[in-house]
Structure formats: structure tokens, C-alpha cells
Nucleic acid binder design. Structure first.
Lengths: 195, 195
DNA sequence: ACCTGAACACCGTTCAAGT
DNA sequence: ACCTGAACACCGTTCAAGT
């Protein structure tokens, strides 16, 4: 029956392209061929390429948020949530099936930057909350959240920069351990009972 | 006198473009306009755009290596070298004047990947050495080098993802402190005197 | 309402022709 | 040896015309 394409069909195809080959692959002509339509058809559903890119990022933002929240709600203990989060993050994200690498790759793109900033803000807020629930005061929670997030992003990037480098369970465990161990207050002026 | 352009003139201009606007800006037509030449002239010095990209990356690789080695040679104490390295890394690198962000942004590009891998390998080897000199055994040095490097890359990326997030001295100090503190063996089966 | 097909601008690439 | 200028392919965008 060959029903016409919807706006969402284009956006979904573009999300795949983004995950597989980056922002540059979110291109009208190749997508049109892939979907068996003409470029003119595209311009019925979208104003221009920027419009498509915005739709793709919106799709990613929503899905990313949903997935993370779902994964976290499955666990009670805040320490367990932290390690679960790291495991989730260091899993398929580096494998090219997740659009995150593609989004990060285009971080400096003015169309991407605000979305990435929102997502980053939301993730940092989640980490703030987790570290607070693990018993850190606000300032410590903030510091550790940012450390943990930088480590998370850096691990993904290090893998991309040098594939095979961090595939050993041992090294990933060291990262997870650090983030879990970080869920203790750092030494400061305040007196504190020793274990 | 208007002497003709050299291959290196093109490569230098391309490196600026890479630092300012990413790999996509390493484009023949815009560079030709910027240099006041025709595209045909470009093709006398280079086989094609890939050839230019290779030249740019070679330039970056050499300069990056040189700079880091120079910065390290200025210091004796391994612990001091580590913190100096972090300070160097968290300085101008995130400011758009350094091509590193542009290179990382194109990490998945097949022309970029091998160069980035070589640079990453060299940097990791340097960190391995520094942590070894700071007293860690080989396995611990490897683990900490990778942790530190992931944290370094992630910090750059976090800043790009959310500008202004890590500009507080306090938070940067926390990162540096972690990497310096990491220069102690992690707890393991071995017995160890307590402080 | 939804799509086609032709047209044009932009940039990568080639090449014959100039100095 | 080094460069120009015209030509062509590719992709983003527009638009008149079709159903």
C-alpha cells in the first residue's frame, strides 16, 4: 500500500544515521534514498536540515532521559544505583549503537550545544541527588558528581580514541570502584568519627 | 611580491580552521578564499582533501607531543609533573584555541582515528611512566594512568558540554587532588601500615 | 494534503590551458 | 614549477506543478 512517510519516519531514520555515522550523516539526500523518497518530499515535513537535526536531538534527549530514569528506579540502595549507572554508561554507549557518541562529537555545533547542555545538566542533577542520598553534604555531592561524570564521559572517549584499551574488566572495575568509593566525604576541617 | 603559497601555508591555515570550527571547516573552497588563491592551486600541493586532513593531523600530532614533553621536562618531582600535566590539560585546551577538541570531535572519522590512537597511546605511556616514577607498581600505574586520562578527557568534554560548569577553582582542584592522591597504591591483599 | 522533478548555490575534484 | 578557469558531481534548498 505504500503509505506516505511521516515526520517521525524521517526523524527515526536520522537518529540511526546519527548513531552510526555522526551528525554529518543526518543528510537529506542519503536519507531520501534510504527511505525511497525524493528530497522534495522531505521539505513537506521539515522546514530545512536544521529542523531535522532539531527533531533528532529532541528524540535523543527524550529517550536518553527515559532510559536512565527507568534504570535507576529499578534499584533502592543509592550506592547500588551509582554502580548501576556506571555499568549502564560503560556498556553499549561506546559501541556505536548509542547516539551519544555522535552527539558528543558535534558538541560545539550551535544546534547541538543547547540540547547537550540540558542533558548534561539533568544528568548532573541526578548524580547530585544520588551522592546526596549516599550521605554527602551538598558541596561534596556536587564535587563528586562532577568528578564521576567527567570520568564517565572520559571513559567513553578514551575507548573511542583507542579501542580495546578499556575492555578489561579489571580496569572498568577500578573506575566503578573509584566512583563508589567517592561516595564518602572527603577529608576537610570538620571532625568526623573514624570507622 | 606575492610569492606563491607553500604546502605548509595551506596546512597551517587548515590547523587554525580545525581549532576554530572543527574538521568540517578544513574545506578547500573556504581556505582558498581565506588565502586568496584558487581551488586549482590547492590541487597542485595536495592530492585531495584527505591529503590536507592528513597533513593537518600530522602537524597537530607533532606539536602536541613536543609541547607536552617540554612542559614535563621543566619539572623534576613526578608528583609535581602529574599536577602540572593536569593544569596544562585543563587550561587552554577547552578554550577553542587548541585543536584537540576538534580532533576529538572527529574521533570516529577513519582518517582521524589512527592519529588520535597514536597520540592517546603516547600520552598513556607518559602517564604510565609518571605513575611508576611516583612509586606505583606496573599494574597500579596502568590503572591510575587510565583513570587519570579518562578524567582529563572527560573534564574537557564536560566543559564543552556545559560551559561554565567547571570553571570554579574549587572543582578543578578536586580533580587535580584526585589524580595526585591516586599516586598511591590502591588497597589490595597486601598488608600495609596505617597512618 | 502530500509528493515529484527541475532548477540553482555550494564545495570537492579534474583538467586543459596559461605563465 | 605553479596557478587559473571552466567543467562536472554531490547535496541543501526552492518552487511550480502534479495527484
Amino acid at each position: 500500500m505504500d503509505v506516505g512517510l511521516s515526520r517521525d519516519d524521517w526523524a527515526q531514520a536520522a537518529l540511526s544515521a546519527l548513531a552510526e555515522e555522526g551528525l554529518a550523516a543526518v543528510a537529506i539526500d542519503p536519507l531520501a534514498r534510504r527511505l525511497g523518497a525524493t528530497k522534495g518530499s522531505f521539505y513537506w515535513h521539515f522546514t530545512n536540515r536544521d529542523d531535522l537535526i532539531a527533531a533528532v536531538l529532541e528524540l535523543w534527549e527524550g529517550r536518553d532521559t527515559t532510559d536512565v530514569i527507568a534504570a535507576l528506579d529499578a534499584l533502592d540502595d543509592p550506592r547500588a544505583r551509582l554502580t548501576a549507572l556506571v555499568r549502564l554508561a560503560l556498556g553499549p554507549a561506546a559501541r556505536g549503537t548509542d547516539p551519544h557518541a555522535g552527539v558528543l562529537a558535534a558538541a560545539s555545533d550551535p544546534r547541538v550545544a543547547p540540547v547537550l547542555e540540558r542533558v548534561t545538566r539533568a544528568r548532573l542533577a541526578t548524580l547530585d541527588r544520588l551522592y546526596s542520598q549516599a550521605g554527602l553534604d551538598e558541596a561534596d555531592a556536587r564535587r563528586h558528581a562532577r568528578l564521576a561524570y567527567a570520568l564517565y564521559i572520559g571513559t567513553i572517549d578514551l575507548r573511542r580514541a583507542k579501542p580495546g584499551e578499556l575492555d578489561g574488566e579489571d580496569e572498568i572495575e577500578a573506575h566503578i570502584e573509584l566512583m563508589a568509593n567517592a561516595a564518602r566525604p572527603r577529608s576537610s576541617g570538620r571532625a568526623r568519627p573514624r570507622s
